[in-house]
């Protein structure tokens, strides 16, 4: 009896989660439809646009949230590195599907490989004499190389979907993606909130943190894994090549505005949300690449803030 129940438990959990997701999507759909009707913006009623907006709303929070701890340690390239290895994860998933008919959701493949890469970068920096930027460059190119080789192995048959992963797209965020994306964003937000103090201590003064017996290695590993979560969340919309932008640009924009670190994180989130929402809207209206539009809006925001501050002085 208990054994049967044990067997059922995962199913029940999955069922509950799927139910929650359905409820969540219905609620989101209702909200968007209401906005669509009151504003007359038809496209807000399209489910794929709703999913795209939901995705950038999540990315706009978690990108700057995690990026704030990367930028000030000169680790801005970590996001880019993990994104390129995440591409290898997508290729692995597509490859398994094409050759062995094992269905692995590409985003799950991306997440697993990006987390492994995050741990690998840590290990390379800690246990070899590799300077961290050289270690990052190796993992970045290595991951992308693995991805391209896997794709060529399938004879190009799966390369149709690759462009979307490289450059991002509004139309490809599936219902399952949204579930994964929202959960990952929640995990990242909770983790950063709980581990805020060790994260900020290590970011500001790593040696003093070590002297105070903060477990710097654990904190660094956590930060890498959270970064992997963020890039995988964002890669569908932003594309592998541009995904790191939302970890960096809003943070740099906010660095001139905030006085305290907490304040600058909030400003970063505002900048990230603005870039995401405006970018997706522009991409839809003018049929532009989604990732590129978001990045250009983010850079535009940075320039506007820089100029505004100069004028105000």
């Amino acid at each position: 009896m208990t054994a049967a129940l044990d067997f059922l438990t995962p199913l029940l959990v999955v069922n509950t989660l799927t139910g929650l997701l359905d409820w969540f999507l219905v609620a989101v759909d209702g909200g968007f439809s209401w906005v669509a009707e009151t504003t007359g913006l038809q496209f807000l009623g399209y489910p794929y646009m709703q999913r795209a907006y939901l995705a950038v709303l999540c990315i706009g929070v978690v990108g700057p949230l995690v990026g704030s701890f990367l930028v000030y340690r000169n680790l801005s390239m970590v996001g880019d590195t993990l994104a390129h290895t995440a591409f290898a994860g997508v290729a692995v998933a597509l490859f398994l599907d094409a050759t062995l008919s094992i269905a692995v959701p590409p985003l799950l493949g991306a997440l697993v490989v990006a987390v492994i890469a995050a741990l690998l970068v840590q290990a390379l920096v800690e246990y070899t004499d590799a300077r961290s930027d050289a270690a990052l460059a190796m993992v970045l190119t290595g991951g992308f190389a693995l991805g391209s080789v896997l794709i060529s192995l399938t004879g190009g048959g799966i390369s149709v979907g690759i462009n979307q992963y490289l450059f991002g797209s509004l139309a490809t965020v599936s219902r399952a993606d949204i579930g994964l994306l929202v959960s990952m964003a929640l995990v990242v937000a909770v983790a950063v909130t709980v581990a805020y103090r060790p994260l900020v201590f290590v970011t500001f003064d790593e040696t003093a943190a070590r002297a105070s017996r903060v477990h710097v290695r654990v904190v660094n590993t956590l930060l890498s894994i959270l970064t992997a979560f963020v890039v995988v969340s964002a890669m569908r919309i932003m594309g592998v090549i541009l995904v790191a932008a939302l970890l960096v640009i809003p943070v740099v924009t906010a660095s001139r505005l905030g006085r305290s670190f907490k304040q600058s994180i909030w400003y970063g989130i505002v900048a990230g949300e603005f870039a995401g929402i405006a970018g997706v809207t522009l991409a839809y209206q003018f049929g532009l690449a989604a990732g590129g539009s978001i990045v250009l809006v983010a850079i535009g925001g940075f320039v506007a803030v820089a100029v505004g501050l100069r004028v105000a002085q």
């Binding site: 000030y72 003064d205 040696t207 003093a208 105070s212 017996r213 001139r256």
Partner: peptide
């Protein structure tokens, strides 16, 4: 393991930390 019994002050903060928006109180 008693981190609170030890405090460390370095030569100066790194350039990155100097750029970091953070207050004295923080």
């Amino acid at each position: 393991g008693d981190g609170e019994r030890i405090a460390y002050v370095a030569q100066d903060v790194t350039d990155a930390a100097r750029d970091m928006p953070i207050t004295v109180r923080e």
